[in-house]
Simulated assay, not measured.
Amino acid sequence: MSETISPTFTFVKDGIFHFSRRIPQELRRHYTSPRIAYSLRTKSTRIAEARARRAADQLDEYWYHLRCQVTDLPGKHMLRLKGATLADDPEQQPAPSSSIKLSEAVSIYLQLKGRNRPVTFQRAAERACGYVIDACGDKDLQAYTKADANAFRDALIARGLAGSSMTRVIGTVRAVTNLAVSEQGHTLNNPFAGVYYDRTAGVANRTSVPADAITIVQAKCRGCDDDLRWLVTMVSDTGMRLAEAAGMTRDDIVRDKDGSLSAYIRPHAWRRLKTKGSERVVPLEGEARWAAQRILDQQTCSQYAFPRYNSADTTNMNTANASLNKCLKQHLPDGCTMHSFRHSMRDRLRAVECPADIVDQIGGWQTDEVGHGYGSGYPLEVIRKWMQAVA
């Protein structure tokens, strides 16, 4: 075989063969990327071909099992119900097993806690436990040791995860293992609890946008007067999360009886909300009111406030974030991004001595105090008073 021709499912980069295979469309929901690609760590065509073929065969087998999960079992109509079978012959009832692997624990966790949760919840659990399986193997939960937990931590560090990301991943693994063991009626001295790592490693400080920079940005947005600038302005004077603003419909912008405008932040099929407390009404004052009016003035058949970032399936947050940060880079101090406007809003509300629970309601921030869970929150006119003070 010629050394210039790459074997199937491979490509050459810097003289090293890499495996590459596109994930079938119907299985994309199980993955975080549309393609699997990694180094085969060889310059030999013969070795690369063998390794690529073996990897492809493993994927074919695994994808077959994934497809079987959503396909009716042949002869399913001929199966007897488990309860009827055991009633007819109790001796056939299998003894309860105390053994449960981590991959099975993920299924239990998602079955119990994954209902009515966004697809990101499932992906986070599968990804976190997948890291453990990559580092330590798919073991019985009782078989994992502190050495395994430390190896898992070291693997996360090697992946370049920041301390905050490691906290989320390790916390997810701990939750999965605790729930699965509890459901089996066992106890577990969880080795993934108390794992030490630097929680501040790689964590960048969140920076607020200074007041003078906000004024400059909003003036530039008025001058350009396009949908990109309306989105920036909407976020800058409301403190919304970018996804919340980008995923709004025109009907989410409501004109009240007195002519004032409000944004109803609510979940949509294409854009879920981060938390239950994120569903709220935000009065549109200052430049946010101008942006909302410009959106409503457009003659369009689209239901979306920002059509370029939305489809029936999703709000393309990555594209929105990248393009807006690029536009803002020359006008904002170093370290500031679109998300910095959210931090600025919190500081601006503090500056006018807005009560903390009103601040939380405006921003959709989670609060742990029990009393805040009672009632329906502050009336819209009270919230508007504080937003006018800020604007």
Rank of each mutant, 00 (worst) to 15 (best):
E3H: 13
T8S: 13
F11E: 08
F19L: 08
P24Q: 07
L27I: 08
R28L: 03
Y31I: 03
Y38K: 15
S44A: 13
T45F: 07
R54P: 11
A55N: 12
A56M: 05
Q58N: 14
L59F: 08
H65R: 14
C68S: 11
V70A: 09
D72F: 11
P74V: 03
H77G: 08
K82R: 11
K82N: 11
A84F: 05
E91F: 13
P94H: 08
S98L: 06
S99G: 11
K101M: 12
A105Q: 02
A105W: 01
V106M: 00
Y109L: 04
L110N: 08
G114T: 06
P118L: 02
T120G: 05
F121W: 05
Q122V: 00
A124I: 03
E126R: 13
C129Y: 00
G130N: 03
V132M: 01
L141D: 11
Y144P: 11
K146A: 14
D148E: 01
N150F: 11
R153I: 05
A155T: 02
A158H: 03
L161D: 06
T167C: 05
V169F: 05
V169D: 04
V169Y: 04
T187W: 10
N189Y: 04
P191W: 01
V195I: 07
Y196R: 00
Y197R: 00
A201T: 00
G202R: 02
V203P: 09
I214C: 14
A219N: 04
C221A: 08
C224A: 07
D226Y: 04
D227F: 09
L231R: 03
V235Y: 02
R241W: 06
E244C: 15
A246G: 12
G247Y: 04
R250Y: 15
I253R: 00
G259E: 01
S262T: 14
S262N: 12
H268P: 04
A269M: 00
W270M: 01
R271H: 01
T275K: 07
L284Y: 07
R289C: 14
Q303D: 14
A305W: 06
R308I: 07
A312T: 15
M317L: 14
M317E: 02
L328Q: 07
Q330Y: 07
H331P: 15
L332C: 07
D334R: 08
D334Q: 10
T337S: 13
T337N: 09
H339K: 08
S340Q: 09
R342E: 06
S344T: 14
D347Y: 09
R348K: 10
R348D: 13
A351K: 11
E353A: 14
P355C: 10
A356S: 10
D357F: 06
D360M: 00
Q361H: 12
I362E: 04
W365L: 06
Q366R: 15
D368T: 15
G371F: 00
G373W: 15
G375P: 14
I383W: 07
W386K: 04
Q388F: 15
A389D: 12
